[in-house]
């Protein structure tokens, strides 16, 4: 998910949104310090993973926030709670919005349109 996140960040930049992409290569143990520092500095947080949303990487971030009593919305992108039949991997990823266009669209919807130029976002991505 890092390469599509980087591509999405480029598109977002054209819209005046600065997105920082974090390569969260360790799902466990979670790099708590890094994620907490990041969320202090940047108002919006999106997690990305090619795994089911339930109990996945985004859930880990939610659990961290809950544990630290941090009042912050975590926007999670991943695979919804249903089974997916055979199709090409790219088709499947786009069904879940896990492609650059999908990520851009998701961020637009979550942050509201039009973008405020001063509204940076961090895309915390499970790498692949």
């Amino acid at each position: 998910m890092v390469p599509p996140a980087i591509q999405a960040a480029k598109v977002l930049k054209e819209h005046g949104i600065h997105a920082l992409v974090l390569n969260a290569r360790f799902v466990k143990p979670l790099d708590e310090d890094m994620i907490l520092k990041l969320c202090e500095a940047i108002p919006h947080l999106v997690t990305l993973e090619e795994n089911v949303l339930m109990g996945g990487f985004g859930s880990a971030v939610l659990e961290l926030f809950s544990q630290k009593s941090i009042q912050k919305t975590v926007h999670r992108m991943g695979i919804p709670d249903r089974f997916f039949d055979h199709a090409t991997p790219n088709e499947l990823l786009s069904m879940c919005n896990l492609h650059p266009e999908g990520i851009v669209k998701f961020v637009q919807e979550k942050l509201g349109k039009p973008f405020k130029k001063s509204s940076p976002v961090s895309l915390v991505s499970l790498p692949l």
Partner: peptide, 19 residues
């Protein structure tokens, strides 16, 4: 698509994913 979920809940595991 389930591995992160079914492995993350187990103590002592280290889970990595390369970019």
């Amino acid at each position: 698509v389930f591995d992160v979920s079914y492995l993350r809940c187990i103590p002592n595991m280290v889970i990595m994913a390369p970019k």
